[in-house]
Amino acid sequence: MLKILHYINQFYGGIGGEEHAGHLPEMREGAVGPGTAFVAAFGADAAITHTIICGDSYFGENTEAAKEAILDMVREVKPDLFLAGPAFNAGRYGFACGTICDAVKAELDIPVLTGMYEENPGAEAFVDKMHIVATRDSAVGMRDAVPKMAKLALKLARGEKIGASIEEGYMPGYMRVNFFEEKRGSERAVDMLLAKMKGEPFVTEFPMPDFDRVDALPPVVDITKAKIALVTSGGIVPKGNPDRIEASSASKYGEYDITGVTDLTEATYETAHGGYDPTYANVDSDRVLPVDVLREMEAAGKIGALHNKFYTTTGNGTAVKSSAAFAIEFAAKLKNDGVDAVILTST
């Protein structure tokens, strides 16, 4: 029976939510949380002998230390495969799964597998380094993800030949697999062209890579004359969240006037973000949106002015498309208002 070691975060490990995101890596025997679904899918072929649980914030903030501690645990267990997640659209979790799988593969030469949503930043960062099964954006997709991941995990653990991404369900971009198509290229190309002309759906065999990079702008010439605006994905809102910005998967952003505001206090501001422990931001929102410091710099003439409006949303599971649309809209407003530079904070 194959031996599998499973990595999950504090939430799936049943330890707790964001208030426990600082949880240090620990190893338990047997399967925990989503591991039980994998155990059912593996049947008699494999067993999850151990589960490592680590807080997402701990991993994100102490990546090197977390990696070393987890590698030691993996060395001790010597599994046939290291399985992580699935992380769906959780950014820190996806980053942790990708980072630790990459380390296990590179340093211990043990096959690895993880799963996440295609927009998870961990997917773009690690898609060329390992097999990542494409999942849905939330845990609703667990039922689809487990059988796909379990099947591929067994093949990888046994060292079997892995088929093309389209056959196995992993994200394309990691390895090239040769196979014979039934129809020759010219015929397939003409079929696609005809479908396109008829307005029917077709699947390209060579999607163009999406290199969406924006070149850096030249620097601000005189910061003491510059009008600076604050933007955040950390969900800072006036107390009571008047526009009801969603705690995750935000459908909107907020624009709030801070004319005359010199300090964000517990009585006046809070966070609407559901993806990190809100305790610290609720006590003092300057910890996420530094209005206090910028007001002092404005008074001291270190900056020209702090713009009287700030823009905010919750970057938690929010689709890239939505975030881009929000920013296109408020960036035009900032431009109109003569803003020279933006400080954007993320949690």
Binding site: D212, L217, P219, A327, A331, L334, V339, D340, I343
Partner: peptide
């Protein structure tokens, strides 16, 4: 990216 694309250094 969208802020920078709009012409405001960020």
């Amino acid at each position: 990216k969208e802020v920078e694309r709009a012409g405001i250094p960020v």
